[in-house]
Design a protein around this nucleic acid. Structure first.
Lengths: 159, 159
DNA sequence: ATATTGTCTCCCATCATTGGAAGGTCAAGT
DNA sequence: ACTTGACCTTCCAATGATGGGAGACAATAT
């Protein structure tokens, strides 16, 4: 394909080095190299002196990764999405399926966290939060294994 | 305090081995040993043959940890809560402060995840999800740079 | 006596990201 | 020529909680 070229020549041809790529994509230099080792960037050209030189296409991939990470996709999901992105024949259903599964995961995590918030909110609502030692929060944590029947909090808290 | 004893003798004195402790507390054997190395269990007695033997007090702590973990507290938060739990003079305000800070963290994480869900839901709502290649999800991830040469107008979705 | 659990310690893997250090090479400005 | 800064590689570490496995020893049941 393309032979190795010199640094200045590559710059004049629109390629950028890793520092510029990091700045342009919002991905740190460390992570750019990391993603390359994960095979997400394909072949990255090098100069004769072994400098990585990035084409606009690589910057697009880096921005794609950054955006996907912000949406919580895992690396393996991103790998799949990148494959679909670069496949002009892909059915949009394949992409939608990944996204739907991810939404499902996210909602499960939200529900789990929300359950924690609900329980803790009840407990803190029942805790005087003063200098006295009585504390329904600790009472709940200490009695956690005995929560077989009812919530001891509800019997102890009459707010 | 107590010298090392034999296994059978310890059992007859009400101490239990790690397997029984795991079953009784809901904490895995692996994690029981891990929590011990983190200093959350204090001194755990050993038999002459180096078996860990747990007293009822240790089981209480393990249940406390298990319950706290279910509520999303970190190990360091649990360490603090355990300290307060075992301090009869603690002010409940100290406990409530930890719980309130934790609720704040949980809500921040929920908001972050919910933002992802909102964005992704909008995108999947715009995605036909059929055999055609046009996909607003990929178009968004690509940030308007579509390697497939697709029509940028396909990103438009007016739901 | 033996077979089967149970337990011991120690090491490694996850997941994504970041950091540092060591030991070089290279590009650009003075 | 020289300095400075950017880049190269490889290795190691840590996050946080959890799990898996190896190899050795102990307890129990047959």
């Amino acid at each position: 394909m393309s032979l190795t070229i010199e640094h200045a020549q590559a710059l004049s041809e629109g390629l950028v080095d890793i520092g510029t790529a990091a700045e342009a994509s919002g991905v740190s230099i460390k992570m750019i190299r990391h993603y390359e080792t994960l095979g997400l960037l394909g072949n990255v050209p090098r100069t004769a002196t072994n400098y990585r030189m990035y084409q606009p296409q690589h910057l697009h991939v880096l921005r794609f990764i950054a955006r996907s990470r912000k949406l919580g996709f895992s690396i393996e999901e991103i790998r799949a999405l990148l494959g679909l992105w670069q496949d002009r024949q892909r059915p949009s259903a394949a992409v939608k399926e990944i996204a739907a599964a991810h939404i499902h995961d996210l909602q499960a995590r939200i529900a789990e966290l929300q359950g924690m918030v609900d329980t803790l909110s009840q407990l803190t609502g029942c805790c005087a939060g003063d200098s006295r030692p009585e504390c329904p929060i600790l009472a709940d944590l200490a009695g956690g294994a005995d929560l077989t029947g009812g919530d001891p909090l509800m019997t102890a808290c009459h707010t």
